[in-house]
Write a protein that binds this DNA or RNA. Sequence first.
DNA 1: ATATTCATGTAACAAGTTACATGATTAG
DNA 2: CTAATCATGTAACTTGTTACATGAATAT
Lengths: 197, 197
Amino acid sequence: MSLKYAVLAALLNGEASGYDLAKVFDVAVANFWSSTPQQLYRELDRLATDGLIEARVVQQERRPNKRMFSLTPTGRDALHTFTLTPPRPTTIRDELMVKIQAMDEADPDAVRVLIEECLERISDKLARYERLRDRMLDGRTEDEYLIEAEQVGPYLTLMRGRAFEEENVRWCERTLEVLAARAARRGAAHGSAAQGG
Amino acid sequence: MSLKYAVLAALLNGEASGYDLAKVFDVAVANFWSSTPQQLYRELDRLATDGLIEARVVQQERRPNKRMFSLTPTGRDALHTFTLTPPRPTTIRDELMVKIQAMDEADPDAVRVLIEECLERISDKLARYERLRDRMLDGRTEDEYLIEAEQVGPYLTLMRGRAFEEENVRWCERTLEVLAARAARRGAAHGSAAQGG
DNA sequence: ATATTCATGTAACAAGTTACATGATTAG
DNA sequence: CTAATCATGTAACTTGTTACATGAATAT
């Protein structure tokens, strides 16, 4: 239901093609609303049919033609109305956590590797967020920006995403400590001679 | 795909009915894998058909009969194998954030109310998590528990959920500050006489 | 009396995922 | 020469949501 509004909200930054939106959703929007390019194309068709956005075909010479979508006044109204209704609860689907839930049945070393790989991916993500943030701030301090800028929604959601990933890092590191401590204890209990260097 | 494994992981705590699982998913599992009771019943049927869990019908006198499900060795193996594969990226769907993304088109006062209501819901959630945690620790300190306990997966995922919500609180409070600062500035710019106390 | 809890389910629908297809262009 | 980028789409499939139904028991 609200992929619809996520798309409308993304179009507040100006017109965009499906392809553009797919990229935006991949980096910035994914923090709070995941979707695949296929879903976007389908949703864009629907929104255009319903008159919430309008498409403008841009002929290109050396590239496939593209459709640039922009909000209509109807679309803007719909988005406004949406912001007045209470949000439904957040849904998270985190496969790593399912594996952690079951970790007591798993190989501790394999779990450690999963977490380490996860930490790497988060680190990439955080770097991308930081670049996006710098581009938004454009030399201003955060406090200046938050008071002066016309739009602060996208900045605030980005900060939410960043905080989420930073928290994730802390949790991963803590979990690695726990794994190490339990491994050490098991090692000690089963005799210090076994598997020794 | 991994609702399947979330269910298997939940059954590591011993046999449970669909109704039991629905409650567990509502409080503890929802942190990292949301699903409705209907999905659970459907999944339980499938898992039983595939031999990953087995059902035992318990006749009850004053209550409807219930089916208690438990892991089979095959199910346990499947779960073990699952923990060895790299997790897919986390997906989040947070309607509040969609509204925040569009907040610059919205009524600031309405947004403030959304956030305040959100804070209340989080506070309830955190209280439930705290009770669950106390029950798990059962008098021990966290460090004692994490070293000694047989199962630490469920504790670690719970702590992840708690950290997520605590971060959420910080973000909400920060956002309320931003809203207040921007409201004050707009008030000042449009003349201090208007709407004065 | 009325609402909530226990315990399950069916059916219809909406949303999300995956695989595949096209076809030129540019960067390495 | 290979891979990635641009730009879209169809089709098949899997998941997830919503509404509804049953029916007794207990708590308020």
